[in-house]
């Protein structure tokens, strides 16, 4: 029958309209909008109103969420983890990283930290390549997205970019745990290597000693 399909369509739209109230009635009006119910409302099972009331409540971001990079510094020493190797600037697809290695003012020898580190925030696309290829885990992706500004975003330097390691540990717990694990393994390897070296040196010394000993005793 002509027209039946339209009624059916309207029925579906009406069903959606009714659904927006079902949960409200079930939970009592207003309770649905508490932070405890946010995951439920946004989850796979969620029905009815789907809105996140953004400035009042925020969607929890997954750990891998990325927006713009930041530089990690160690709080105790205040030093950046960055060694100015420049791999991030090589990997960056839009080439928005400018990096300058520090130099010893007296000898002119390059040092292992950056003298200047600039990112053009207006150019950065947040692809995460710099963080992916950084061999020292010193550049990481921030989850902060509220960056709207009244002026054109441009170069930001080390001062704006650096954030403490505890912040990184807070927003990227899994990644940080992996780093710690790697660090521990590395230290263990180092210790083992050192022990092995010591043992080897000892053995070599013993051998030397043995060699030094006059051989003519037995003969």
């Amino acid at each position: 029958m002509y027209g039946f399909g339209v009624l059916k369509t309207l029925g579906i739209a009406f069903y959606h309209f009714v659904l927006t109230y079902v949960d409200d009635v079930k939970m009592g009006f207003g309770k649905r909008y508490t932070p405890e119910h946010l995951p439920e409302r946004q989850g796979v099972e969620g029905r009815g109103i789907y809105t996140v009331r953004y400035p009042k409540e925020r969607l929890p971001l997954p750990e891998r969420s990325r927006n713009h990079p930041f530089l990690v510094y160690i709080e105790e020493t205040g030093k950046l983890k960055c060694t100015a190797c420049g791999i991030c600037a090589q990997a960056c697809p839009v080439q928005c990283i400018w990096i300058e290695r520090a130099k010893d003012p007296e000898t002119g020898k390059p040092l292992s930290y950056p003298a200047a580190f600039h990112i053009d925030q207006g150019l950065c696309i947040g692809c995460g390549m710099c963080a992916e290829f950084c061999p020292f885990d010193s550049i990481k992706m921030d989850i902060e997205y509220e960056n709207a500004s009244y002026t054109r975003p441009g170069f930001v330097g080390i001062e704006e970019l650096k954030k403490p390691e505890s912040y990184h540990a807070k927003i990227h717990p899994t990644d940080y745990a992996r780093e710690m694990e790697e660090k521990r393994l590395k230290e263990e390897r180092k210790r083992k290597a050192a022990a092995a070296k010591a043992a080897k040196a000892k053995a070599a010394a013993a051998k030397k000693e043995a060699a030094k000993r006059p051989p003519d005793k037995t003969s």
């Binding site: 400035p55 927006n67 509220e146 960056n147 500004s149």
Partner: peptide, 28 residues
């Protein structure tokens, strides 16, 4: 940059910015 052509009031960095970031720009 569109500011070469028009006067821009609010800039939102990101590629693309999240919808929340856009709402944040409205609030700004």
């Amino acid at each position: 940059g569109v500011d070469k052509l028009l006067p821009v009031d609010v800039y939102i960095p990101g590629c693309p910015p999240r919808p929340e970031a856009l709402i944040h720009a409205f609030l700004a």
